[in-house]
Write a protein that binds this DNA or RNA. Sequence first.
DNA 1: GTGAAAGCGCTAACAA
DNA 2: TTGTTAGCGCTTTCAC
Lengths: 353, 353
Amino acid sequence: MTEELPVRGRRTTLADVAARAGVSVPLVSIVMRDAPGASAATRERVRKAAEELGYRPDSRARMLRRSRTRLIGVVFGVQHPFHGDLVSGLYTAADAADYELALSAVTPGRDERRAVASLLQDRCEALILLGPALPTSELADLAARMPVIVVARPVRNRAVDVVRTDDAAGLHLAVDHLVDLGHTRIAHVDGGRAPGAAERRRGYREALDHHGLADQALIVPGGLTEDDGAAAARELIAARPTAVTVFNDRCATGVLDVLRREGVAVPGDMSVVGFDDSSLARLSHVALTTVAQDAGRITALAVARAVARLDGDAAADEREQVIPPHLVVRSTTAAPRADLAAAPARRVRTSSA
Amino acid sequence: MTEELPVRGRRTTLADVAARAGVSVPLVSIVMRDAPGASAATRERVRKAAEELGYRPDSRARMLRRSRTRLIGVVFGVQHPFHGDLVSGLYTAADAADYELALSAVTPGRDERRAVASLLQDRCEALILLGPALPTSELADLAARMPVIVVARPVRNRAVDVVRTDDAAGLHLAVDHLVDLGHTRIAHVDGGRAPGAAERRRGYREALDHHGLADQALIVPGGLTEDDGAAAARELIAARPTAVTVFNDRCATGVLDVLRREGVAVPGDMSVVGFDDSSLARLSHVALTTVAQDAGRITALAVARAVARLDGDAAADEREQVIPPHLVVRSTTAAPRADLAAAPARRVRTSSA
DNA sequence: GTGAAAGCGCTAACAA
DNA sequence: TTGTTAGCGCTTTCAC
């Protein structure tokens, strides 16, 4: 308790603790690491000395000396809310596996290459990249040096491991749900060239096809942001499907906002389904029906895979792990109104009374 | 270009490069650091060897050897969008000052204490804490060990440096703007115990007072999230001010959404001002009038202060740097409707036609 | 301009 | 159980 905080200046080292406890340096090391090879009495004394000096081990020196650093590098986008969920999960998983995480952010002024380079200098043993935009060839080059786990982006290359949500299955869930409610004219606002967008488009088409609705397919160009959704909403208002699946929750929020402002009731006149189950979707006043990615499972698998590669296990395993999403039904989906279900598009304006 | 990527396994070291170039290890070190003391010819040869081997310096060994690590630790909240802007700015500023950043995230499962502890082990020379919730006493303890710069939270303790937006001034700007437009009944949705909330409340009161509107003050309990705003909106609908200043943009978004859904036109029936100028506010379909924090300036000053403390400069300077915000006028504020400006509250429902 | 020797803080291997 | 010796990859004297 009486941690006598050392003045700013030279750090307290093992040698300081050793001197104070009257033992050798390696013995202190043994005690600090809880390694076998010291008597209970010594441990006691050493711990006390360390506490009194406010000693903190130097992870750099430790990693330098050990052959292993037990350090996993993580590249994430500082703007992307879902990456926040993933980073949280990664910490938990790494902790359980007794690994440390080194975070490196991608920002408007710092690209992925720089983010990766700094992690290489830090001597990370493996890299976990969240939704990277790097070309496959560079990912493969990296993977030649160290285990690389790509999260939330499909990569066709056997050198890297991939953990991602089954995006196509997610759209099947969404479309099936809407069809169950009685919808037949279901549009899709896509994500352009964003990671996962192609799979979601494909899932949408497949699902419509599966229900014999292929000729009703309508794909509206969208994107990742609320603004993209807002723009897409204007097209939706013209085309008037009774339901729409949207690339992600942010985009869906933009859709919702414009729809409502233009007098199109949701879900009365149009049902909307998002993707991600981000905090946006959960907001009580938004209450967006959405496809949830299992961030906890994805991150656990990503770390597990990194650890397996490092330990040399499972080297022949499947390279890609595709995690099924699940549907979270909230308040933006409902059965189509009787007069809309079959009839062609018409202009509708609901009084909210 | 022909970077012959070494197989996974032992890292390439200075010794490898030295052997390949046919020189000694220290000489390679000199070349890699661009330090004086090597002939042009040697530099050329060494660089070539390093490139061919794909050599990357080991930052841990380097920091261990140098007395200085030139490493600044940053604690940020992975959920908070504004922290993303700040982290971006910090990277830029650190880069310019030739410092590295070590990021440590606060997540639902990882508290500030842990985040700080890991940075201490990494031998950071200074700590920048974004909106920390740690008690002042702990901040002071930390500051006894190393320079601590707190961003976006006022701290009454001479041991730590603080860089923050002038929250009170921000509310003056907002209220002045609304008064200029002709509003007299201006409410405030507050941020509860969030960092900065008290100052914003105070600024709101002061500004009203300054305009002789103190008796019109109405503070509605709010919070940081959209949901908090949604809840507050219900109270606003009952009280019917003609304008409202809201703790932050997220909360303001919740307010906006509920107001509009309940048929209260913005800015027709009620003007709304946010705080932060987050990406939310900038969205074209939201177009929120808001008080902008100068993230670039805040982060530049935070890094500059950390560097100054480390270099021993300016040790006697002011401990707290308060940055003036500025108002960004968008589309959620306008003059009050003639019948609302003076008249007491009444129920209004606008047809959007 | 270049190389040899020492040491940052720590841990692994061995000896006592 | 404990101490001694060596060395991780790098930078810093200090000779040559």
